[in-house]
């Protein structure tokens, strides 16, 4: 398996090198090196950029910008990102968290991509070498773009909810994950953004449930319509962890718990 690593000072140069056959961008390498180890012969060159900007976390005026090369552990321990730390801590075990990057998580196919689920609920902007785009649009066509980083408004801790359901505790691959940013006025939901992991090959928004939640209080009798709508439009994956049927069955249960927590 002939392989090579090409390192460039800027992301733009790395991006140009990706047009060569067999070239793949490498962030932390937890998925691409694993693919090479498993004998993925479509891979011949790893390409990366060591631009220090890619490893920076900035939080200014309530908005966070996280470079693509920032690892999950750095997000999890950042004092200004404590509101969303649990989404970063949900990724892998400690060694994986030290390696897994924010950029790489955006490309991880389900059942991976727990942090990307959180970024979708946060309505993050993805900064790429070809310009900025909303995360939903980014996720829809994610191949071929080189990511410099993401930015989003940091929500108050009480507005951000996240759960990753897994069979093995404390770490383990997701049966599903749910992230929600819920804003309320006087106990009534003003707006909700809900994102789901493992309910398609990539993170998706649960728009029907979001609508059903508007104006509701987060009480048992009031959340029922949203809970009933959470499965609309989902196409869960089947893998060694769970079948699509099982994932669809337990989604409303975990969503209800997340709303009432």
């Amino acid at each position: 398996m002939p392989l090579a690593l090409k390192t460039y000072p800027t992301l733009a140069e790395a991006g140009s090198a990706l047009s060569d056959a067999g070239a793949r961008y490498i962030g932390g390498g937890t998925l691409v090196v694993r693919a090479a180890n498993e004998g993925d012969v479509s891979l011949s060159t790893f390409v990366r950029s060591t631009d220090p900007e890619l490893s920076v976390i900035k939080v200014e005026g309530g908005r966070a910008t996280i470079g693509a090369s920032v690892a999950m552990s750095a997000v999890a321990r950042h004092p200004d990102l404590s509101a969303i730390a649990k989404a970063a801590r949900a990724v892998g075990g400690p060694a994986i968290r030290n390696m897994a990057t924010v950029g790489g998580n955006l490309f991880a196919a389900a059942p991976y991509g727990d942090f990307a689920v959180a970024l979708l609920a946060l309505d993050a902007t993805v900064h790429t070498t070809a310009g900025d785009l909303g995360i939903e649009e980014f996720l829809a066509g994610r191949d071929g773009r080189v990511v410099a980083g993401v930015s989003f408004a940091v929500p108050p801790a009480e507005n951000f909810r996240f759960v990753k359901v897994s069979r093995v505790k404390p770490k383990g691959v997701a049966v599903l994950s749910i992230a929600a940013v819920i804003e309320a006025d006087a106990g009534k939901v003003r707006s909700a953004r809900i994102a789901l992991g493992c309910m398609a090959d990539r993170p998706i928004r649960a728009r029907s449930a979001e609508k059903a939640l508007a104006g509701a209080t987060l009480r048992e009798e009031d959340v029922a319509p949203a809970v009933a709508a959470i499965g609309e439009g989902v196409h869960p994956i089947t893998d060694a962890i769970a079948s699509a049927w099982y994932r669809a069955e337990v989604l409303p249960v975990h969503f209800r718990r997340l709303l009432l927590e």
Binding site: T30, V33, R34, A95, N98
Partner: peptide, 23 residues
């Protein structure tokens, strides 16, 4: 060699990492 077992763990610059997934 897939990152799942941890038996290849080493410490690089003070951080735990998997040597099977590190170039």
């Amino acid at each position: 060699n897939q990152g799942t077992c941890g038996s290849c763990s080493v410490i690089i610059d003070g951080e735990l990492r998997l040597s099977c997934l590190t170039l």
